[in-house]
């Protein structure tokens, strides 16, 4: 086809009145935006919201339903952002299945949304990890099915054309595929997700932050967050990770990115065991101080 047919001549021409009008939805600093009403008081996922360990000896079909949301919430007090999410939490719900299971994945795009969404699960063998099969416009629902053929903890994320914008806004999570023999028993399991947010403001600048494509291209985030809000999980936020001395805790950690990797270290402790990059099947690494968590992995 005539790809060379178009030649740039006029470029972008916009009259001043149009520019003034455009100021309403063109990305701009927080102090230029009106403060919107919060759609939700909490976008941070509860780290104890982990599906129970699987004690089945045979495969089954696991049905998972998720709804995508576009909601205004606080990054920290006084700082708002229009998040995108699976089921209104960051990271999105943790999925748990077993090698040999079929996972029936249903994605609904809430009818109040303005953008298409879908899901690419790294536990899927198939085109785009299911992205094309689950592409939904606002108000639509789609279902596809895949077989879990390998064990590990895997990222899932929205994968529409502006996927880095959608992931940066919160659309990622993790799916655990247990090996047939299961995982060793522990006293606690926690689920956390890291990602970075690129906005028109500075960290802590009060007001409503718009997304900043230029900052994302430069890979210079405004916030790097765990569970979607600044200091969301802990004594100064939601103090939901509590254990007793002598108890064991397994942390499922997903790095959504879209661009930064994490160097995950427990200050004042050490990782007794690490499954490198979330894969299950190799020997575990023991007594690890800091483990890399590449974006798009665990």
């Amino acid at each position: 086809m005539g790809a060379a047919g178009a030649t740039a001549v006029a470029g972008c021409v916009s009259a001043p009145p149009a520019e003034e009008q455009a100021a309403k939805s063109t990305p701009q600093p927080p102090n230029m935006n009106e403060s919107p009403v919060l759609d939700t008081q909490r976008i941070a996922g509860n780290p104890t919201a982990v599906p129970p360990p699987i004690d089945r000896d045979s495969p089954t079909t696991v049905s998972v339903e998720m709804t995508t949301h576009e909601q205004v919430a606080e990054v920290e007090p006084g700082v708002t952002y229009t998040y995108m999410s699976f089921d209104g939490r960051i990271p999105g719900p943790m999925i748990r299945a077993r090698v040999g299971d079929h996972v029936e994945m249903t994605v609904t795009n809430d009818e109040s949304n303005s953008m298409p969404h879908n899901i690419d699960l790294h536990a899927v063998r198939g085109p785009g990890g299911g992205a094309e099969a689950s592409m939904v416009a606002p108000g639509e629902t789609k279902t596809f099915t895949f077989k879990a053929t390998y064990p590990g903890l895997f990222t899932y994320h929205c994968a529409v054309p502006n996927l880095d914008y959608h992931i940066s806004s919160g659309m990622f999570g993790a799916i655990l595929i247990e090996p047939e023999v299961g995982l060793p028993a522990v006293d606690h399991e926690f689920y956390l997700g890291q990602h970075e947010l690129y906005t028109t403001g500075d960290a802590g600048e009060e007001g409503h932050h718009d997304f900043d494509f230029e900052a994302m291209k430069d890979e210079e985030p405004t916030y790097v967050l765990i569970n979607g809000e600044k200091y969301a999980i802990g004594p100064n936020g939601h103090n939901e990770m509590q254990i007793e001395t002598g108890e064991s805790a397994r942390v499922y950690y997903v790095s959504g990115g879209p661009n930064l990797s994490s160097s995950l270290h427990p200050i004042g402790s050490v990782w007794d065991e690490v499954h490198p990059q979330g894969g299950i099947g190799s020997d575990v690494h023991r007594n690890i101080q800091t483990t890399p968590v590449p974006r798009g992995r665990r």
Binding site: P161, N162, L163, D164, I167, M216, K217, E219, G257, P258, N259, L260, S261, P294, R295, G296, R297
Partner: peptide, 8 residues
């Protein structure tokens, strides 16, 4: 999977 490097 630093995805901005992919799409942009």
């Amino acid at each position: 999977h630093a995805l901005t490097r992919v799409g942009r």
